[in-house]
């Protein structure tokens, strides 16, 4: 009995999900919309793309997310944001992260270099007028950047997860560690631009919000081997934000 317990404990510590869902040439295109009283206004196009990156030592996976406002918005508030993470293709462990945001007249760039041996991240922040700031931050064992976290959600085994069960994630954003929680809310079939899909419905937020039943930030992932995000709903001060899949290419399965 004791041996079984030890073996189970060891297995639970060392068992780490491997990437069985994310392909190396995936391209997912989304429309980000603003919804007020059922009236939808398309604001921007969000693209999530993967590609292999070869260095002299290894081949890594580049996870890239871009957001660009539609042309009708460009004269009012132009957004050209880029987020990317260079990760281990098997486990999505991040090594390098870049964030380059251009929003109206606001500019900010952030670069993280992860050192998993020392559990530290070297960050370089650049703002307008080449205002550069270097800082080294300590991180936990499981801390990831926002991009690799988004892809990492797809590695969870929701098929064998109980409804209402949560998983914690630690995200490094703006050089601060933030705790997030993903709660599995069950399966739901929804209509999307790529057809009717059976999905895993997830709630994102802090533990307190979920306990209060405020599941206002929701994600729908296809309940197949690809587990791609097809729909997202986010609460914003006035109305709702929505993320809807527009097209998909290069899936692994």
């Amino acid at each position: 009995m004791r041996i079984t317990l030890i073996l189970l404990t060891l297995f639970s510590v060392t068992a780490r999900p491997q990437n069985s869902a994310i392909g190396t040439h995936e391209k997912l295109i989304y429309t980000a919309s603003y919804n007020m009283s059922g009236l939808l206004t398309d604001i921007a196009q969000v693209t999530m793309e993967t590609s292999p990156v070869k260095t002299s030592k290894a081949t890594l996976l580049r996870l890239k997310c871009t957001a660009a406002t539609y042309s009708k918005w460009d004269n009012f508030f132009k957004i050209r944001d880029l987020y990317e993470s260079y990760v281990n293709p098997n486990t999505l462990t991040p090594y390098l992260y870049n964030r380059d945001i251009n929003e109206g007249s606001y500019y900010k760039a952030m670069k993280y270099t992860f050192s998993h041996k020392t559990n530290t991240v070297k960050s370089v922040q650049t703002k307008k007028n080449n205002n550069v700031e270097n800082k080294t931050v300590s991180i936990g064992n499981y801390t990831k950047d926002i991009v690799s976290t988004l892809y990492h959600i797809r590695l969870f085994d929701f098929e064998h997860m109980e409804i209402g069960r949560s998983k914690s994630l630690t995200i490094l954003f703006d050089r601060k560690e933030t705790k997030a929680q993903i709660t599995y809310l069950g399966k739901e079939t929804i209509s999307t631009a790529i057809g009717k899909k059976e999905c895993y419905k997830l709630a994102i937020g802090s533990s307190a919000e979920i306990l209060e039943g405020n599941n206002s930030n929701l994600l729908w992932l296809t309940a197949d081997n690809n587990k791609i995000i097809v729909y997202g709903k986010f609460k914003i001060p006035v109305g709702n934000g929505e993320l809807k899949i527009k097209s998909v290419t290069g899936l692994k399965h």
Partner: peptide, 9 residues
């Protein structure tokens, strides 16, 4: 080796 996965339940 260092493949961390954040599964804290």
């Amino acid at each position: 080796g260092l493949e961390d996965i954040d599964i804290e339940e």
